[in-house]
């Protein structure tokens, strides 16, 4: 009986008895959710264009952030370092297309996936060789990102809103909106979907596969940079950051691998879900449930809706 009370009643009593804290949990879930969406977006872009899960997206986040910080530490002013990093991400996209993808046109998806695993390890080694393994502070202040916090006092309690979190949410919303418009309302966006469906068919109607891949990998690089700046500002820029990117996997399973709105909704479902579950139900399972909660939700989706909330249902005729 106690168990039922702890599962079904007590969490809601806690929410009601400390509404300020409940608001804080919701805000934390919202911030985490938007950041997860941002990470997932990088995966979605590349999956839409090539049908491949880009295993290297996590290390691209680290690589972009380290390039930015490394240039600044080498004496380049922050904003110039930012533009040079964007240039570096373009160069990376061009090189990936030129050296890796061009040779794999019309190959099995698993081969492209294996190529991204190779790219992942190359970027880890290259990044560690160039930047070293030490963590570096993100140049948040130098880039004009706000610091500090504002404390509200609703219901006689306190809710702390970090200005950096607000900036992260705004950046994520702007970036996601811009990319959604770009890929849904422009000619390139339509070309991208054509490439995703069939490489050879896209080529036959005059779509430049190489150009599309460079654009998409560059867009994924920009998303990686934005993600690296925000996550790096919250903690540090280190190679451990690539692990955070794994959180995108359940987000993608929930939202669908090909849907930008899906990445947003999936991110928010995971963000809100894991925070609420950890805080109000986590103690029943020994705490630390956040690490696996997202994967359990993803597993449930795989059982009942394997294409995710917004993913395209794959029907193959045999």
């Amino acid at each position: 009986m106690d168990i039922l009370y702890n599962i079904l009643i007590d969490p809601f009593v806690q929410m009601g008895s400390a509404p300020d804290f409940f608001l804080q949990v919701l805000w934390s879930g919202f911030v985490a959710g938007t950041l997860y969406s941002l990470i997932a977006l990088g995966f979605v872009l590349i999956f839409k264009a090539s049908g491949v899960f880009n295993f290297a997206q996590g290390i691209m986040v680290v690589f972009a952030a380290l390039t930015l910080v490394g240039l600044y530490q080498a004496g380049v002013p922050a904003w110039i370092a930012l533009f040079l990093t964007i240039g570096a991400m373009f160069a990376l996209a061009w090189l990936v297309e030129r050296i890796v993808l061009r040779n794999l046109v019309n190959q099995e998806e698993i081969i492209l996936f294996m190529a991204t695993i190779g790219l992942n390890y190359f970027l880890i080694g290259f990044g560690e060789y160039v930047f070293g393994g030490e963590p570096k502070p993100m140049i948040a202040k130098e880039l004009g990102l706000p610091t500090g916090s504002t404390t509200f006092e609703p219901f006689g309690g306190i809710v702390i809103i970090e200005h950096l979190d607000v900036a992260a949410v705004i950046m994520a919303i702007v970036l996601v909106s811009a990319l959604a418009i770009f890929f849904n309302k422009t000619r390139i966006g339509r070309a991208l979907r054509a490439v995703a469906d069939d490489h050879q068919a896209a080529l036959s109607v005059g779509i430049s596969l190489n150009q599309i891949w460079v654009i998409v990998w560059f867009a994924a690089g920009i998303v990686a940079l934005a993600t690296g700046i925000m996550w790096g500002a919250k903690s540090d820029v280190s190679f451990a950051l690539q692990i955070v990117a794994l959180k995108a996997l359940p987000v993608l399973i929930i939202g669908g691998f090909t849907s930008i709105p899906g990445a947003i909704i999936g991110g928010l479902v995971i963000g809100f879900g894991e925070k609420l579950f950890e805080i109000y139900w986590g103690a029943l399972l020994g705490s630390g449930v956040e690490g696996w909660f997202a994967y359990v939700i993803a597993l449930i989706f795989l059982l009942f809706r394997p294409q995710g909330l917004f993913g395209e249902k794959i029907i193959e005729r045999i």
């Binding site: 985490a32 955070v244 959180k247 805080i279 630390g288």
Partner: peptide, 19 residues
Amino acid sequence: PVGVKEMQNQGSQWLNVRK
């Protein structure tokens, strides 16, 4: 507890500390 995957994502743990 902080999982290895959550090393740079400790929002929940510190909400629990506040609680």
